[in-house]
């Protein structure tokens, strides 16, 4: 038989012992820790992945919430602005009315006062004119009376009047 396919006992003996020792040693000191480490890491990665997915969902949720809040704030802002505008318009309108009223009132008062003043002035003028007329008449009378002819005439006229009566 060819020595290639008819092995001696030596190598079989040594190798049988060696392979069993090798399997036992590698199983205890290599494969168990290695497979355990790989398993643990896979678990850790899975956990981290699911955590990441959860976090992502959370972030999305928060984002949606924020969006909602922003939308709401926008609406609120618009409403407030609208109201403010309305209020200011109202105020402006009101103040305008008041001012017009005030002005009208002032105007009316002024007119009234002017009329009064005018009336007073006219009255004053009238009385002054009368006074002046009296004065003038007095002066004229004084002047004319100083002359005896005039006095006589006057007296005669007066006499005439009395006579007539």
């Amino acid at each position: 038989m060819n020595p290639l396919v008819n092995p001696g006992i030596g190598l079989i003996f040594w190798f049988s012992i060696a392979i069993i020792i090798l399997i036992v040693l590698l199983k205890k000191f290599a494969w168990k820790p290695i497979l355990k480490a790989i398993h643990q890491r896979n678990n850790a990665i899975d956990k981290a992945m699911s955590a990441a997915v959860d976090a992502r969902a959370e972030v999305d949720k928060m984002k949606a919430k924020n969006e909602q809040i922003i939308q709401q704030a926008k609406l609120e802002k618009e409403a407030i602005l609208k109201e403010a505008k309305l209020t200011s318009e109202k105020i402006v309108a009101a103040s305008k009315d008041k001012a017009t009223e005030e002005a009208n009132r002032i105007l009316a008062e002024a007119q009234k006062r002017i009329t009064q003043e005018r009336l007073a002035a006219v009255q004053d003028m009238k009385s002054q004119v009368a006074e002046h007329a009296v004065d003038i008449a007095e002066k004229i009378l004084k002047d004319s009376m100083q002359k005896p002819a005039v006095q006589d005439q006057y007296l005669s006229s007066l006499m005439n009047d009395i006579e007539l009566n």
Partner: peptide
Amino acid sequence: DLSITKNTTAMFISILLLLLIFITMAKSY
């Protein structure tokens, strides 16, 4: 014949190599 022949020696060397490599690997984790 239970001699430690060339193949037996080579086999022992490879076994030591395997133990060295894989125990190092296990420790690196």
